[in-house]
Design a protein around this nucleic acid. Sequence first.
RNA 1: GUGGCUGUAGCUCAGCUGGUUAGAGUCCUGGAUUGUGAUUCCAGAUGUCGUGGGUUCGAGUCCCAUCAGCCACCCCA
Length: 428
Amino acid sequence: MSKHIQAVRGMNDILPDVTPAWRYLEGTVRGLFDAYGYQEIRMPIVESTELFKRSIGEVTDIVEKEMYTFEDRNGDMLTLRPEGTAGCVRAGIQNGLLHNQTQRLWYSGPMFRHERPQKGRYRQFHQIGVETFGLAGPDIDAELILMSARLWKQLGLADAVELQLNSLGSSESRTAYRAILVEYLWHHADQLDEDSQRRLNSNPLRVLDSKNPQMQALIAAAPKLSDHLDAASREHFEQLCALLDAAGVRYTINPCLVRGLDYYSKTVFEWVTDKLGAQGTVCAGGRFDGLVEQLGGRGTPAMGFAMGVERLIALLDQGGIPQQDYRPHAYLVLLGEQAQREGLLLAERLRDAVPGLRIETHCGGGSFKSQFKKADRSGAPLALILGEEECQQGRVGIKPLRDDGEQQQMSHGEAAEWLASYMQQTND
RNA sequence: GUGGCUGUAGCUCAGCUGGUUAGAGUCCUGGAUUGUGAUUCCAGAUGUCGUGGGUUCGAGUCCCAUCAGCCACCCCA
Protein backbone atom coordinates (compact mmCIF):
# COMPACT_ATOMS: atom_id res chain seq x y z
CA MET A 1 0.00 0.00 0.00
CA SER A 2 2.79 2.39 0.83
CA LYS A 3 3.99 2.22 -2.74
CA HIS A 4 0.66 3.52 -3.90
CA ILE A 5 0.05 7.21 -3.84
CA GLN A 6 -3.08 7.92 -1.89
CA ALA A 7 -5.55 10.73 -2.26
CA VAL A 8 -4.81 13.63 0.04
CA ARG A 9 -6.49 13.21 3.38
CA GLY A 10 -10.07 14.41 3.42
CA MET A 11 -10.22 14.69 -0.38
CA ASN A 12 -12.41 12.03 -1.86
CA ASP A 13 -12.88 10.46 -5.24
CA ILE A 14 -16.47 10.56 -6.36
CA LEU A 15 -16.89 7.14 -7.94
CA PRO A 16 -19.30 5.94 -10.62
CA ASP A 17 -21.63 4.40 -8.07
CA VAL A 18 -22.48 7.83 -6.68
CA THR A 19 -22.12 10.09 -9.70
CA PRO A 20 -25.74 9.41 -10.74
CA ALA A 21 -26.85 10.91 -7.43
CA TRP A 22 -24.61 13.93 -8.04
CA ARG A 23 -26.01 14.41 -11.52
CA TYR A 24 -29.54 14.11 -10.22
CA LEU A 25 -28.91 16.72 -7.56
CA GLU A 26 -27.06 19.09 -9.89
CA GLY A 27 -29.68 18.75 -12.58
CA THR A 28 -32.52 19.43 -10.16
CA VAL A 29 -30.73 22.46 -8.76
CA ARG A 30 -30.11 23.89 -12.23
CA GLY A 31 -33.76 23.60 -13.12
CA LEU A 32 -34.69 25.25 -9.85
CA PHE A 33 -32.41 28.23 -10.38
CA ASP A 34 -33.69 28.64 -13.92
CA ALA A 35 -37.21 28.68 -12.56
CA TYR A 36 -36.36 31.66 -10.34
CA GLY A 37 -34.30 33.59 -12.86
CA TYR A 38 -30.89 33.06 -11.30
CA GLN A 39 -27.81 33.13 -13.51
CA GLU A 40 -24.74 30.97 -13.16
CA ILE A 41 -21.35 32.44 -12.37
CA ARG A 42 -18.05 30.57 -12.23
CA MET A 43 -15.15 31.88 -10.21
CA PRO A 44 -11.56 30.69 -9.84
CA ILE A 45 -10.78 28.20 -7.12
CA VAL A 46 -7.72 30.17 -6.07
CA GLU A 47 -7.93 33.76 -4.83
CA SER A 48 -5.67 36.19 -3.03
CA THR A 49 -5.37 35.23 0.61
CA GLU A 50 -6.22 38.81 1.47
CA LEU A 51 -9.71 38.42 0.03
CA PHE A 52 -10.67 35.80 2.59
CA LYS A 53 -9.00 37.60 5.45
CA ARG A 54 -10.99 40.71 4.71
CA SER A 55 -14.33 39.02 4.15
CA ILE A 56 -14.54 36.01 6.45
CA GLY A 57 -12.72 37.75 9.29
CA GLU A 58 -9.13 37.63 10.52
CA VAL A 59 -9.86 35.85 13.77
CA THR A 60 -12.23 33.18 12.53
CA ASP A 61 -11.17 29.54 12.65
CA ILE A 62 -11.40 29.34 8.89
CA VAL A 63 -8.85 32.06 8.31
CA GLU A 64 -6.66 31.31 11.31
CA LYS A 65 -6.16 27.60 10.86
CA GLU A 66 -8.17 26.05 8.08
CA MET A 67 -7.08 27.69 4.85
CA TYR A 68 -4.87 26.09 2.25
CA THR A 69 -2.54 28.99 1.69
CA PHE A 70 0.62 29.00 -0.35
CA GLU A 71 3.05 31.33 -1.98
CA ASP A 72 2.84 31.69 -5.72
CA ARG A 73 6.07 31.65 -7.73
CA ASN A 74 6.11 35.41 -7.81
CA GLY A 75 5.66 35.72 -4.07
CA ASP A 76 1.90 36.45 -3.95
CA MET A 77 -0.01 34.77 -1.16
CA LEU A 78 -2.83 32.67 -2.58
CA THR A 79 -5.50 30.53 -0.98
CA LEU A 80 -7.72 27.69 -2.13
CA ARG A 81 -11.17 29.13 -1.57
CA PRO A 82 -12.74 27.96 1.71
CA GLU A 83 -16.17 29.27 0.67
CA GLY A 84 -17.78 30.92 -2.32
CA THR A 85 -19.24 34.23 -1.22
CA ALA A 86 -15.98 36.18 -1.04
CA GLY A 87 -14.95 35.22 -4.56
CA CYS A 88 -18.41 35.92 -5.89
CA VAL A 89 -18.43 39.42 -4.41
CA ARG A 90 -14.92 40.05 -5.71
CA ALA A 91 -15.95 38.91 -9.19
CA GLY A 92 -19.07 41.05 -9.05
CA ILE A 93 -17.14 44.19 -8.09
CA GLN A 94 -14.31 43.56 -10.53
CA ASN A 95 -16.65 43.05 -13.47
CA GLY A 96 -19.05 45.82 -12.66
CA LEU A 97 -21.93 43.46 -11.97
CA LEU A 98 -22.89 45.14 -8.73
CA HIS A 99 -22.72 48.77 -9.71
CA ASN A 100 -26.16 50.25 -9.22
CA GLN A 101 -27.91 47.12 -10.31
CA THR A 102 -29.53 43.93 -9.20
CA GLN A 103 -28.05 40.45 -9.51
CA ARG A 104 -29.28 36.98 -8.74
CA LEU A 105 -26.38 34.57 -9.12
CA TRP A 106 -25.53 30.97 -8.37
CA TYR A 107 -22.35 28.92 -8.45
CA SER A 108 -21.18 25.46 -7.58
CA GLY A 109 -17.85 23.81 -7.04
CA PRO A 110 -15.22 22.57 -4.64
CA MET A 111 -14.17 24.40 -1.48
CA PHE A 112 -11.20 23.64 0.76
CA ARG A 113 -10.79 23.72 4.51
CA HIS A 114 -8.07 22.00 6.46
CA GLU A 115 -10.26 20.44 9.16
CA ARG A 116 -10.17 17.02 10.68
CA PRO A 117 -12.28 14.87 8.35
CA GLN A 118 -15.48 13.50 9.75
CA LYS A 119 -18.86 12.31 8.54
CA GLY A 120 -20.21 15.10 6.34
CA ARG A 121 -17.02 17.11 6.65
CA TYR A 122 -14.14 16.88 4.22
CA ARG A 123 -11.11 18.95 3.29
CA GLN A 124 -12.30 19.24 -0.25
CA PHE A 125 -16.05 19.52 -0.26
CA HIS A 126 -18.60 20.93 -2.65
CA GLN A 127 -21.02 23.74 -2.27
CA ILE A 128 -23.81 25.04 -4.40
CA GLY A 129 -24.40 28.64 -3.49
CA VAL A 130 -26.66 31.53 -4.35
CA GLU A 131 -25.96 35.22 -3.90
CA THR A 132 -28.23 38.15 -4.59
CA PHE A 133 -27.11 41.77 -4.76
CA GLY A 134 -28.84 45.11 -4.70
CA LEU A 135 -31.96 43.83 -2.99
CA ALA A 136 -32.46 45.08 0.55
CA GLY A 137 -35.92 43.96 1.52
CA PRO A 138 -37.28 40.92 3.30
CA ASP A 139 -38.90 39.84 0.03
CA ILE A 140 -35.61 38.55 -1.38
CA ASP A 141 -34.83 36.85 1.94
CA ALA A 142 -38.16 35.09 1.63
CA GLU A 143 -37.57 34.19 -2.01
CA LEU A 144 -34.28 32.50 -1.17
CA ILE A 145 -35.87 30.52 1.62
CA LEU A 146 -38.85 29.57 -0.53
CA MET A 147 -36.50 28.50 -3.27
CA SER A 148 -34.59 26.23 -0.91
CA ALA A 149 -37.82 24.86 0.50
CA ARG A 150 -38.96 24.03 -3.02
CA LEU A 151 -35.72 22.19 -3.62
CA TRP A 152 -36.26 19.93 -0.61
CA LYS A 153 -39.71 19.14 -1.93
CA GLN A 154 -38.32 18.31 -5.37
CA LEU A 155 -35.63 16.12 -3.89
CA GLY A 156 -38.02 14.38 -1.54
CA LEU A 157 -36.17 15.72 1.48
CA ALA A 158 -38.87 17.99 2.85
CA ASP A 159 -39.45 15.76 5.87
CA ALA A 160 -35.75 15.37 6.55
CA VAL A 161 -34.89 19.02 7.12
CA GLU A 162 -36.15 21.87 9.26
CA LEU A 163 -35.62 25.57 9.05
CA GLN A 164 -34.04 27.67 11.78
CA LEU A 165 -34.15 31.40 11.58
CA ASN A 166 -32.72 34.38 13.40
CA SER A 167 -31.78 38.01 12.96
CA LEU A 168 -28.42 39.42 13.97
CA GLY A 169 -29.48 43.04 13.46
CA SER A 170 -27.69 45.61 11.37
CA SER A 171 -23.92 45.53 11.52
CA GLU A 172 -24.05 48.54 13.85
CA SER A 173 -26.51 47.00 16.30
CA ARG A 174 -24.73 43.71 16.05
CA THR A 175 -21.43 45.35 16.91
CA ALA A 176 -23.05 47.18 19.79
CA TYR A 177 -24.63 43.99 21.13
CA ARG A 178 -21.36 42.19 20.72
CA ALA A 179 -19.69 44.70 23.02
CA ILE A 180 -22.42 44.32 25.62
CA LEU A 181 -22.18 40.55 25.48
CA VAL A 182 -18.41 40.54 25.72
CA GLU A 183 -18.61 42.72 28.78
CA TYR A 184 -21.15 40.38 30.38
CA LEU A 185 -19.04 37.32 29.60
CA TRP A 186 -15.92 39.07 30.79
CA HIS A 187 -17.54 39.58 34.18
CA HIS A 188 -18.20 35.85 34.38
CA ALA A 189 -14.96 34.75 32.80
CA ASP A 190 -14.32 32.32 35.64
CA GLN A 191 -17.47 30.39 34.71
CA LEU A 192 -16.60 30.06 31.04
CA ASP A 193 -15.39 26.73 29.78
CA GLU A 194 -12.27 26.51 27.67
CA ASP A 195 -14.09 26.71 24.35
CA SER A 196 -16.09 29.71 25.40
CA GLN A 197 -13.02 31.58 26.60
CA ARG A 198 -11.54 31.11 23.20
CA ARG A 199 -14.77 32.21 21.50
CA LEU A 200 -14.79 35.31 23.65
CA ASN A 201 -11.98 36.53 21.43
CA SER A 202 -12.88 34.92 18.14
CA ASN A 203 -16.67 34.94 17.92
CA PRO A 204 -18.37 35.90 21.18
CA LEU A 205 -21.88 35.38 19.82
CA ARG A 206 -21.04 31.73 19.37
CA VAL A 207 -20.74 31.35 23.13
CA LEU A 208 -24.54 31.47 23.13
CA ASP A 209 -24.55 28.37 20.94
CA SER A 210 -22.49 26.27 23.37
CA LYS A 211 -23.58 22.67 23.85
CA ASN A 212 -21.99 22.45 27.28
CA PRO A 213 -24.77 21.93 29.88
CA GLN A 214 -22.72 23.75 32.48
CA MET A 215 -22.86 26.88 30.39
CA GLN A 216 -26.60 26.97 29.97
CA ALA A 217 -27.45 28.99 33.08
CA LEU A 218 -24.90 31.62 32.19
CA ILE A 219 -26.23 31.76 28.64
CA ALA A 220 -29.84 32.02 29.78
CA ALA A 221 -28.97 35.00 31.94
CA ALA A 222 -26.96 36.73 29.22
CA PRO A 223 -28.23 39.86 27.48
CA LYS A 224 -30.44 38.84 24.58
CA LEU A 225 -29.58 39.61 21.01
CA SER A 226 -33.26 40.11 20.25
CA ASP A 227 -33.49 42.85 22.88
CA HIS A 228 -30.77 44.80 21.14
CA LEU A 229 -32.01 44.67 17.58
CA ASP A 230 -32.37 48.01 15.87
CA ALA A 231 -35.91 48.92 14.83
CA ALA A 232 -35.29 48.48 11.12
CA SER A 233 -33.88 44.99 11.56
CA ARG A 234 -36.76 44.00 13.79
CA GLU A 235 -39.26 45.16 11.24
CA HIS A 236 -37.33 43.45 8.45
CA PHE A 237 -37.39 40.21 10.39
CA GLU A 238 -41.08 40.48 11.19
CA GLN A 239 -41.91 41.02 7.55
CA LEU A 240 -39.83 38.03 6.55
CA CYS A 241 -41.63 35.87 9.07
CA ALA A 242 -44.97 37.09 7.77
CA LEU A 243 -43.99 36.21 4.21
CA LEU A 244 -42.91 32.75 5.27
CA ASP A 245 -46.11 32.28 7.22
CA ALA A 246 -48.14 33.30 4.18
CA ALA A 247 -46.24 30.81 2.06
CA GLY A 248 -46.79 28.04 4.58
CA VAL A 249 -43.09 27.54 5.29
CA ARG A 250 -42.53 26.32 8.82
CA TYR A 251 -39.58 27.54 10.81
CA THR A 252 -38.16 27.76 14.29
CA ILE A 253 -36.74 31.01 15.54
CA ASN A 254 -33.45 30.15 17.16
CA PRO A 255 -32.07 33.12 19.08
CA CYS A 256 -28.72 31.33 19.41
CA LEU A 257 -28.28 30.86 15.68
CA VAL A 258 -25.26 33.01 14.93
CA ARG A 259 -23.21 31.65 11.99
CA GLY A 260 -19.47 31.63 12.03
CA LEU A 261 -18.53 34.10 9.34
CA ASP A 262 -18.07 37.74 10.27
CA TYR A 263 -19.88 39.26 7.34
CA TYR A 264 -23.43 38.24 8.24
CA SER A 265 -25.98 40.75 9.46
CA LYS A 266 -29.77 40.83 9.84
CA THR A 267 -31.33 37.60 8.54
CA VAL A 268 -29.51 34.32 9.08
CA PHE A 269 -30.95 30.86 8.54
CA GLU A 270 -30.02 27.21 8.49
CA TRP A 271 -31.69 24.09 7.20
CA VAL A 272 -30.71 21.30 9.56
CA THR A 273 -31.28 17.56 9.73
CA ASP A 274 -30.90 15.06 12.54
CA LYS A 275 -30.04 12.27 10.11
CA LEU A 276 -26.38 13.04 9.47
CA GLY A 277 -24.82 12.95 12.92
CA ALA A 278 -22.84 15.92 14.11
CA GLN A 279 -22.73 17.77 10.78
CA GLY A 280 -26.44 18.44 10.50
CA THR A 281 -26.43 21.71 8.61
CA VAL A 282 -27.30 21.05 5.02
CA CYS A 283 -27.87 24.58 3.80
CA ALA A 284 -27.16 27.88 5.47
CA GLY A 285 -26.94 31.53 4.68
CA GLY A 286 -27.90 35.02 5.51
CA ARG A 287 -27.69 38.65 4.70
CA PHE A 288 -24.31 40.35 4.24
CA ASP A 289 -25.17 43.96 3.54
CA GLY A 290 -21.74 45.25 4.49
CA LEU A 291 -19.49 42.91 2.55
CA VAL A 292 -19.47 44.55 -0.86
CA GLU A 293 -18.39 47.85 0.63
CA GLN A 294 -15.89 46.10 2.86
CA LEU A 295 -14.28 44.65 -0.24
CA GLY A 296 -14.04 48.02 -1.94
CA GLY A 297 -17.31 48.22 -3.84
CA ARG A 298 -20.12 50.65 -3.38
CA GLY A 299 -22.43 49.77 -0.47
CA THR A 300 -24.77 47.07 -1.76
CA PRO A 301 -27.28 44.97 0.15
CA ALA A 302 -26.76 41.26 -0.40
CA MET A 303 -28.19 37.95 0.70
CA GLY A 304 -27.23 34.40 -0.07
CA PHE A 305 -26.90 30.84 1.05
CA ALA A 306 -24.82 27.75 0.36
CA MET A 307 -25.62 24.06 0.39
CA GLY A 308 -23.24 21.25 1.27
CA VAL A 309 -23.41 18.86 -1.64
CA GLU A 310 -21.85 15.86 0.12
CA ARG A 311 -24.34 16.23 2.96
CA LEU A 312 -27.29 16.42 0.59
CA ILE A 313 -26.02 13.38 -1.29
CA ALA A 314 -25.79 11.53 2.02
CA LEU A 315 -29.42 12.44 2.72
CA LEU A 316 -30.48 11.38 -0.75
CA ASP A 317 -28.73 8.05 -0.28
CA GLN A 318 -30.90 7.41 2.73
CA GLY A 319 -34.09 8.15 0.86
CA GLY A 320 -33.12 6.59 -2.45
CA ILE A 321 -32.90 8.62 -5.63
CA PRO A 322 -35.25 8.21 -8.57
CA GLN A 323 -33.96 5.79 -11.16
CA GLN A 324 -32.07 8.14 -13.43
CA ASP A 325 -31.01 5.85 -16.19
CA TYR A 326 -27.64 6.46 -17.75
CA ARG A 327 -27.25 2.84 -18.72
CA PRO A 328 -27.10 1.95 -22.40
CA HIS A 329 -30.19 0.91 -24.28
CA ALA A 330 -28.21 -1.69 -26.16
CA TYR A 331 -24.95 -3.57 -25.86
CA LEU A 332 -23.42 -4.48 -29.19
CA VAL A 333 -21.91 -7.92 -29.24
CA LEU A 334 -19.33 -8.72 -31.96
CA LEU A 335 -17.94 -12.02 -33.11
CA GLY A 336 -15.37 -12.51 -35.82
CA GLU A 337 -12.82 -10.19 -37.36
CA GLN A 338 -15.20 -8.68 -39.87
CA ALA A 339 -17.76 -7.94 -37.17
CA GLN A 340 -15.11 -6.33 -34.99
CA ARG A 341 -14.18 -4.07 -37.88
CA GLU A 342 -17.76 -3.18 -38.75
CA GLY A 343 -19.16 -3.00 -35.25
CA LEU A 344 -17.93 0.48 -34.37
CA LEU A 345 -19.20 1.80 -37.70
CA LEU A 346 -22.61 0.21 -37.24
CA ALA A 347 -22.88 1.77 -33.80
CA GLU A 348 -21.97 5.17 -35.23
CA ARG A 349 -24.63 4.85 -37.94
CA LEU A 350 -27.27 3.86 -35.41
CA ARG A 351 -26.39 6.82 -33.17
CA ASP A 352 -26.69 9.08 -36.24
CA ALA A 353 -30.07 7.65 -37.12
CA VAL A 354 -31.55 7.53 -33.61
CA PRO A 355 -30.81 10.65 -31.54
CA GLY A 356 -30.51 9.93 -27.85
CA LEU A 357 -29.72 6.28 -28.39
CA ARG A 358 -27.17 4.88 -25.96
CA ILE A 359 -25.13 1.99 -27.33
CA GLU A 360 -22.18 0.37 -25.66
CA THR A 361 -20.01 -1.43 -28.18
CA HIS A 362 -18.07 -4.46 -27.07
CA CYS A 363 -14.34 -4.07 -27.47
CA GLY A 364 -11.57 -6.51 -26.90
CA GLY A 365 -12.96 -9.68 -28.42
CA GLY A 366 -13.84 -12.75 -26.41
CA SER A 367 -16.42 -15.48 -26.75
CA PHE A 368 -20.09 -14.80 -27.33
CA LYS A 369 -20.69 -16.18 -23.87
CA SER A 370 -18.43 -13.68 -22.17
CA GLN A 371 -19.76 -10.86 -24.33
CA PHE A 372 -23.34 -11.65 -23.36
CA LYS A 373 -22.27 -11.71 -19.75
CA LYS A 374 -20.95 -8.18 -20.19
CA ALA A 375 -24.09 -7.18 -22.03
CA ASP A 376 -26.06 -8.36 -19.03
CA ARG A 377 -23.78 -6.56 -16.57
CA SER A 378 -24.05 -3.32 -18.51
CA GLY A 379 -27.71 -3.19 -17.54
CA ALA A 380 -28.79 -2.71 -21.15
CA PRO A 381 -32.25 -4.05 -21.91
CA LEU A 382 -31.15 -5.10 -25.39
CA ALA A 383 -28.28 -6.94 -26.98
CA LEU A 384 -27.37 -6.17 -30.58
CA ILE A 385 -25.65 -9.09 -32.27
CA LEU A 386 -23.21 -8.88 -35.11
CA GLY A 387 -21.57 -12.20 -35.95
CA GLU A 388 -20.15 -13.70 -39.09
CA GLU A 389 -23.57 -14.73 -40.42
CA GLU A 390 -25.07 -11.29 -39.81
CA CYS A 391 -22.13 -9.62 -41.49
CA GLN A 392 -22.48 -11.72 -44.61
CA GLN A 393 -26.21 -11.05 -44.80
CA GLY A 394 -25.89 -7.37 -43.96
CA ARG A 395 -28.18 -7.87 -41.00
CA VAL A 396 -28.05 -7.47 -37.24
CA GLY A 397 -29.70 -9.39 -34.41
CA ILE A 398 -31.66 -7.80 -31.59
CA LYS A 399 -32.24 -9.79 -28.45
CA PRO A 400 -34.26 -8.53 -25.47
CA LEU A 401 -32.39 -9.25 -22.26
CA ARG A 402 -34.99 -8.14 -19.74
CA ASP A 403 -38.12 -9.85 -20.96
CA ASP A 404 -38.82 -13.04 -22.85
CA GLY A 405 -39.21 -11.47 -26.28
CA GLU A 406 -37.81 -13.35 -29.26
CA GLN A 407 -34.50 -12.56 -30.84
CA GLN A 408 -34.98 -11.00 -34.29
CA GLN A 409 -32.80 -10.49 -37.34
CA MET A 410 -33.17 -7.37 -39.46
CA SER A 411 -31.35 -5.00 -41.79
CA HIS A 412 -29.40 -2.12 -40.31
CA GLY A 413 -32.03 0.37 -41.47
CA GLU A 414 -34.80 -1.69 -39.89
CA ALA A 415 -32.78 -1.93 -36.70
CA ALA A 416 -32.59 1.86 -36.50
CA GLU A 417 -36.36 2.12 -36.86
CA TRP A 418 -36.92 -0.69 -34.39
CA LEU A 419 -34.69 1.04 -31.81
CA ALA A 420 -36.39 4.39 -32.37
CA SER A 421 -39.81 2.96 -31.74
CA TYR A 422 -38.48 0.94 -28.81
CA MET A 423 -37.27 4.18 -27.22
CA GLN A 424 -40.63 5.79 -27.82
CA GLN A 425 -42.50 2.87 -26.27
CA THR A 426 -40.33 2.82 -23.19
CA ASN A 427 -40.59 6.59 -23.08
CA ASP A 428 -36.88 7.06 -23.03
C1' G B 1 -5.88 20.78 17.02
C1' U B 2 -8.01 16.89 21.16
C1' G B 3 -10.19 12.04 22.30
C1' G B 4 -12.30 6.92 21.20
C1' C B 5 -12.69 2.77 17.69
C1' U B 6 -10.72 0.37 13.25
C1' G B 7 -6.83 -1.15 9.05
C1' U B 8 -6.27 -9.15 6.48
C1' A B 9 -7.64 -10.51 -1.75
C1' G B 10 -10.88 -5.34 -6.19
C1' C B 11 -15.34 -5.53 -2.39
C1' U B 12 -17.62 -7.65 2.54
C1' C B 13 -15.34 -10.15 6.31
C1' A B 14 -13.22 -14.91 9.35
C1' G B 15 -8.43 -16.02 11.53
C1' C B 16 -9.50 -18.92 19.25
C1' U B 17 -4.81 -17.69 24.77
C1' G B 18 1.56 -15.85 19.32
C1' G B 19 3.02 -22.06 16.32
C1' U B 20 4.30 -25.05 9.74
C1' U B 21 2.48 -23.42 2.93
C1' A B 22 -3.25 -16.97 5.52
C1' G B 23 -9.10 -18.56 4.61
C1' A B 24 -14.55 -17.83 3.08
C1' G B 25 -18.20 -15.27 0.25
C1' U B 26 -18.47 -12.00 -3.77
C1' C B 27 -16.13 -10.27 -8.09
C1' C B 28 -12.89 -11.63 -12.26
C1' U B 29 -11.12 -15.49 -16.04
C1' G B 30 -11.91 -20.18 -18.43
C1' G B 31 -14.86 -24.61 -19.08
C1' A B 32 -19.72 -27.94 -18.87
C1' U B 33 -22.92 -25.72 -24.55
C1' U B 34 -17.83 -25.35 -32.33
C1' G B 35 -22.55 -18.42 -32.03
C1' U B 36 -26.21 -16.45 -26.86
C1' G B 37 -26.54 -13.25 -20.56
C1' A B 38 -28.68 -13.17 -14.66
C1' U B 39 -29.49 -19.67 -12.11
C1' U B 40 -26.40 -24.36 -11.46
C1' C B 41 -21.77 -27.27 -11.57
C1' C B 42 -16.33 -27.57 -12.21
C1' A B 43 -11.48 -25.32 -12.51
C1' G B 44 -8.25 -21.13 -12.06
C1' A B 45 -6.20 -16.12 -10.87
C1' U B 46 -5.46 -12.50 -7.07
C1' G B 47 -2.48 -10.74 -0.74
C1' U B 48 4.84 -7.27 1.00
C1' C B 49 -2.10 -9.22 6.78
C1' G B 50 -1.83 -0.23 6.15
C1' U B 51 3.60 1.15 6.84
C1' G B 52 8.19 1.20 9.87
C1' G B 53 10.55 -0.49 14.10
C1' G B 54 10.65 -3.69 18.57
C1' U B 55 9.73 -8.25 21.89
C1' U B 56 10.19 -13.62 20.71
C1' C B 57 13.13 -19.74 18.69
C1' G B 58 8.65 -18.03 16.01
C1' A B 59 4.18 -12.14 15.01
C1' G B 60 -1.79 -11.38 10.93
C1' U B 61 -2.05 -12.17 16.41
C1' C B 62 1.82 -8.69 21.68
C1' C B 63 4.37 -3.47 22.27
C1' C B 64 5.80 1.42 20.17
C1' A B 65 5.66 4.89 16.32
C1' U B 66 3.53 6.48 11.85
C1' C B 67 -0.17 6.87 7.97
C1' A B 68 -5.21 6.29 6.66
C1' G B 69 -10.55 5.51 7.68
C1' C B 70 -14.74 6.04 10.95
C1' C B 71 -17.18 8.57 15.13
C1' A B 72 -17.34 12.57 18.62
C1' C B 73 -15.28 17.41 20.47
C1' C B 74 -14.14 21.77 17.89
C1' C B 75 -15.64 24.14 13.35
C1' C B 76 -19.11 24.57 9.62
C1' A B 77 -21.89 23.60 4.12
